[in-house]
Write a protein that binds this DNA or RNA. Structure first.
Length: 287
DNA sequence: ATTCAGGAAGTAG
DNA sequence: CTACTTCCTGAA
């Protein structure tokens, strides 16, 4: 009886998720829309969502319900998270606009490569690169899909084997980073667990990983909910709403705003601000 | 229809 | 401050 109520609780939480905003909003890049649902990966397993008109009868296949909850941080109480971050009026508006947006928890290696692909690329392009890496170099599953290629596999390739996937200058960084990991020079396990800035420093030892990509990986692997990546969009949000002076703020000044305005859930606030500002202002000419 | 400049979840030198 | 790859968009 207790099992049944937790099961219904899990389904209720999943029913609130805004799938487009969460799965295609620039956190994760492995999800593809299928007929009335989604096809993607959780913890290296191929999974799928089959939605129906009736939200209660949605099916979640490929891993158990706790796995789904864990992927979307649904074991946390999002009502109280919203209450907490809504103290900021701009975050409040973003949460009102996209109440079903959730944070994902992707595998660290896949997440790292996704963001090594990301510089100067729009989200749909990153998704294409992600799936090219899978189909070119990932082990096939029985169902005909492809795993994300491991560090060892990518390290064993030539840089040109990555170039042919149209990764451009990103190919070198991905190849060099894969080699650092495959030969044990760099270990995810050495990541400091309770010190965000030290964790950023550790990730930045990898070629091609700067401050922005480091914080993306820390946030979208679920490792540090306080990580707030500053990219062109969050730079615009912060400058637009929190910077009162005329001149353009320096990066350090934007970081100070983040420290001052957002607390330990800064990363959660960031996903709402980012998604809301980007969907509102993308392709509209700044006045 | 075709070309071309400008810009896109940045980092390294 | 600039180069770096590729792709897409809009103006001519």
């Amino acid at each position: 009886v207790a099992d049944r109520s937790t099961l219904e609780d899990a389904r209720a939480k999943l029913a609130q998720v805004d799938w487009v905003a969460t799965l295609r909003g620039g956190q994760t890049f492995c999800w593809q829309p299928i007929d009335r649902g989604w096809s993607g990966w959780i913890g290296g397993r191929p999974v799928s969502i089959h939605l129906d008109r009736d939200k209660d009868s949605a099916r979640f296949q490929g891993c158990d319900l706790p796995g789904w909850l864990n992927y979307l941080h649904l074991e946390m109480d999002w009502e109280s998270i919203h209450r907490s971050i809504r103290e900021d009026p701009h975050v409040a508006e973003a949460v009102r606009a996209f109440p079903g947006l959730r944070l994902v928890r992707d595998p660290w290696w896949e997440c790292l490569v996704n963001f090594l692909c990301s510089p100067l690329k729009p989200i749909p392009q990153i998704e294409i690169l992600h799936h090219r890496l899978r189909s070119a170099y990932g082990l096939p599953t029985p169902s005909g899909r492809h795993q994300f290629p491991s560090p060892g596999v990518l390290a064993s390739l030539q840089e040109d084997d990555l170039r042919i996937l149209k990764l451009g200058y990103r190919a070198k960084f991905i190849h060099q980073t894969a080699r650092c990991i495959a030969n044990g020079t760099w270990q995810w396990e050495d990541l400091p667990k309770d010190d965000l800035e030290a964790a950023v420093t550790h990730l930045r030892k990898l070629p091609g990983v700067g401050d922005k990509i480091a914080r993306c990986v820390l946030l979208y692997t679920g490792s540090y909910l306080g990580a707030f990546p500053i990219d062109v969009w969050t730079e615009r949000v912060l400058t637009d709403f929190y910077w009162k002076r005329k001149r353009k703020p320096k990066l350090g000044e934007l970081e100070a705003i983040v420290r001052h305005e957002f607390g330990p859930l800064a990363g959660i606030a960031q996903i709402y601000l980012f998604h809301w500002y980007r969907t509102t202002y993308a392709h509209s000419t700044p006045d």
